[in-house]
Design a protein around this nucleic acid. Structure first.
Length: 269
DNA sequence: ATGACAACCTGTGGGC
DNA sequence: TGCCCACAGGTTGTCA
């Protein structure tokens, strides 16, 4: 469920509660996530929060010595609870602070809770990640350089976290539509000029989605429990069979790289 | 190095 | 109402 805008929304929701807080304890009820939750995470207890950051779709809670690394997977969400409430189904762990509990729910258990020794950036999961799409380091020239000789579909290319982080299945379709690029086009056969447009589209769609609190298709909600409202702004995603907003042609759906992809065969070449 | 795809897991919705 | 299948916002690991 969560791509970069949803993770950013989640981060912003928990940030005010974590700022200057001390971790009271981490309660793990179900350690069987994407990787087994290590005992190390209990080392967080008693440590003060130094800062919070997002790296791609990862959330890093940096403590005095070491960091908690969270990933929401496909169906994870965090919720800030200010009153005691009994854990429900799929509530796999809590991060308890003095004034609240941050509770993780994840039906599919593709999410992650790991302990990172400093410096966090050297951890294998973070070490080879590409640039942040909303940073100076990301632009069309970067995409152009990285794509030379690549035969993979451009949609798969921009969803590769080593190329650029945070672009998931929804926003990949959206950005390619905005840039007029067919998702199946070989990444190595997209011009520099069109990659510049694509990079701008990626940054634009992610920023607008963040402003709307992300996209809620079925069950995403931010840390305050509210859904995101970007679903009503989607141009192609989940619109198979409906009319293209530009040419009134029919939006197509096709599986690319095991994922449903949406595009207009007229507007995207 | 690159690309294709199976795997991880649960819930939901559609067709019959 | 119930059963079975396809599919769902992510990422890694394996194999050719």
């Amino acid at each position: 469920m969560p791509e970069l805008p949803e993770v950013e929304t989640t981060l912003r929701g928990i940030e005010p509660w974590l700022r200057d807080a001390v971790i009271r304890q981490v309660v793990v009820r179900e350690p069987r996530l994407r990787w087994p939750v290590p005992q190390d995470v209990h080392g967080a207890a008693g440590q003060a929060v130094r800062g919070l950051q997002r790296r791609g779709k990862y959330i890093l809670i940096n403590l005095e010595r070491g960091s908690l690394l969270l990933h929401l997977g496909m169906s994870g969400s965090l919720r800030v609870l200010t009153e005691a409430s009994p854990p429900g189904k799929h509530d796999h762990f809590d991060i308890e602070l003095a004034g609240c509990t941050i509770r993780y729910n994840d039906p599919r258990r593709f999410g992650t809770l790991l302990w990172l020794e400093p410096p966090p950036g050297r951890h294998p999961l973070l070490a080879s990640l590409g640039p942040e799409p909303l940073s100076e380091a990301f632009d069309g020239d970067h995409l152009y350089r990285r794509s030379r000789g690549r035969k993979a579909a451009v949609k798969n290319f921009i969803m590769d976290g080593r190329v650029v982080v945070g672009v998931g299945n929804i926003y990949a379709s959206e950005a390619l539509y905005m840039a007029g690029i067919h998702p199946l086009r070989a990444a190595g056969r997209v011009s520099r000029a069109r990659y510049r447009g694509l990079a701008e589209s990626i940054a634009d769609v992610l920023q607008r989605a963040i402003r709307q609190g992300g996209t809620t298709l079925r069950d995403f909600s931010g840390a305050g429990g509210l859904p995101g409202y970007f679903a009503q702004d989607l141009l192609v995603y989940a619109r198979a069979g409906q009319q293209c907003f530009q040419c009134a042609g029919e939006i197509r759906q096709k599986v690319i790289g095991q994922r449903a992809s949406y595009y207009c065969a007229v507007c995207q070449r």
